[in-house]
């Protein structure tokens, strides 16, 4: 069952593509941004998956314990940073949508393009 062994990576790939699809296909700017957020979350999942070691614990060294396996803490630290980046991107994007709504009165991409053509 080699394929099932990569269960987490399958989920990563599927979630990544779901997000990407939404970014490309959706016409509504908020939905596009949500797609982008899903797209980024998939990457977080990939990083978290790769630091998991079967039977391992948190990397805290205890006295007298020598045969313990530890998980790799670095990917979690990295992804913490990436989550912050993702949140700020989404926040900035939403702020842009608010301003687009104020300027155009719509957040549908087609409407915005049509209004630009007219002016």
């Amino acid at each position: 069952m080699e394929l099932l062994g990569y269960y987490n990576y399958w989920v990563f790939a599927i979630v990544l593509m779901v997000g990407f699809y939404a970014v490309i296909v959706r016409n509504n700017l908020i939905k596009k941004l949500l797609g982008l957020a899903i797209f980024q979350s998939a990457v977080f999942l990939m990083y978290i998956t790769m630091d998991k070691v079967e039977g391992a614990t948190a990397p805290i060294i205890q006295e007298g314990v020598t045969d313990q396996i530890y998980s790799n803490p670095l990917p979690q630290v990295l992804i913490l940073t990436a989550i912050v980046v993702g949140v700020s991107t989404t926040a900035l994007g939403l702020a842009m949508v608010v301003r687009i709504k104020e300027a155009y009165g719509s957040i549908e991409e087609d409407d915005i393009i049509a209004k630009d053509r007219k002016s």
């Binding site: 982008l36 797209f39 991107t89 900035l92 994007g93 687009i100 300027a103 915005i112 630009d116």
Partner: peptide, 19 residues
């Protein structure tokens, strides 16, 4: 105001590239 949709596109593409 056309700067805004342009930035939105820039943001989407930039984020996809960085991801």
């Amino acid at each position: 105001r056309r700067a805004l949709p342009a930035v939105f596109k820039y943001l989407i593409f930039g984020t996809i590239g960085a991801t």
